[in-house]
């Protein structure tokens, strides 16, 4: 019973923390541009504001348009419940949740692209086609990098992978997971729509990917979509943090362990957010046709990682 409580609390925790992480990257960018940047409260009040605004909905919109924000939000929350955060077990953790995780996100994306086509605007269609092109490359890279870790740990569950690596020495972790880490980092950038893949801050419709798909949304729906996007970003950062730097699942017990675990976790995701922000500050956006090249690199890294595990075998 208490574990169910903890698992639910974990999802709520991710939901609450997600906007803060977006703020962190925004603030970094602001500082790099000699700007003051928003206060941390701003991201929450933005969501609050959107939730309380009226919606303008196209007359051409069908049920898909109305259902999408909820499907997206639900799918992202389900994925969040599979994500190992700190100590406690996942709400829906079971064998095979890696595959469910990837396809929960795909479900959300499927509805997102469909809804973008639904109102029949030009930019929506453009965004959908670009999103599908890129995600069809990101998805295999994501799956393969999970599989390479699964092969090592003999577990298709995210919890299982994390708990296996948390008992290994750092050298071993570095040795077995660095390639997969590279792949997953690139996929994270693509999935969270950040530079160099997509520019979340642009107003130029012709260059948009994610933003182009949600141009028709406003008010509550937009708030849900924005929030799911932020949660998706934190899920990926959490995965990166816990799969590849898993050293907080051992040792202590009780509240001390809980506190240290949360602290370490925060440190890790903010460090990773810093890395993402650093990349964003230091590079321009890739030309759309070059973005698949970067995702191809992710795919190759994932394949190499899997091959590496196969060659070395499990015995080492």
């Amino acid at each position: 019973m208490i574990s169910i409580f903890f698992a639910c609390a974990k999802v709520l925790f991710l939901m609450a923390l997600a906007p803060l992480l977006s703020w962190f990257i925004k603030k970094m960018k602001a500082i790099s541009q000699n700007r003051v940047g928003p206060s941390p409260v701003q991201v929450y009040t933005d969501l609050w504001k959107l939730f309380h605004k009226d919606m303008v909905i196209s007359e051409a919109a069908s049920w898909i348009f109305h259902a999408m924000p909820f499907v997206l939000f639900a799918s992202v929350l389900s994925a969040a419940s599979l994500t190992p955060v700190s100590g406690a077990v996942s709400l829906f953790g079971f064998t095979g949740d890696v595959i469910v995780f990837v396809y929960l996100l795909a479900l959300g994306r499927f509805f997102l692209t469909l809804a973008a086509l639904d109102t029949g605007t030009t930019f929506g269609g453009m965004g959908s086609s670009r999103e599908m092109t890129l995600s069809s490359l990101a998805e295999p890279a994501l799956l393969l990098s999970f599989f390479s870790l699964s092969f090592r740990t003999q577990s298709l569950s995210l919890d299982g992978i994390v708990s296996y690596f948390s008992w290994q020495s750092p050298i071993q972790i570095l040795f077995f997971t660095s390639l997969a880490f590279g792949a997953l980092l690139i996929v994270t950038i693509a999935e969270s729509g950040r530079i160099p893949m997509d520019n979340p801050a642009t107003h130029l419709e012709l260059t948009m990917i994610h933003e182009a798909m949600i141009l028709e949304y406003s008010g509550r729906y937009l708030a849900l979509i924005e929030w799911s996007h932020q949660i998706k970003q934190i899920i990926f950062l959490t995965l990166l943090a816990n799969l590849f730097f898993p050293w907080n699942f051992s040792g202590m017990s009780g509240f001390a362990a809980f506190g240290v675990g949360i602290g370490l976790y925060l440190l890790k995701i903010f460090f990773l957010a810093f890395v993402i922000g650093w990349i964003e500050i230091h590079s321009a956006k890739l030309r759309l046709f070059r973005a698949p090249d970067l995702l191809a690199v992710a795919f190759v890294l994932a394949v190499l990682s899997l091959l590496g595990q196969l060659i070395i075998g499990r015995g080492v």
Binding site: Q33, P196, A201, L204, S283, A284
Partner: peptide, 16 residues
């Protein structure tokens, strides 16, 4: 040009 290529550092410095 820098801004439209999403390199906002250059853009904001030149705007300054």
């Amino acid at each position: 040009i820098s801004l439209d290529a999403a390199f906002s550092f250059g853009a904001s410095q030149l705007m300054r």
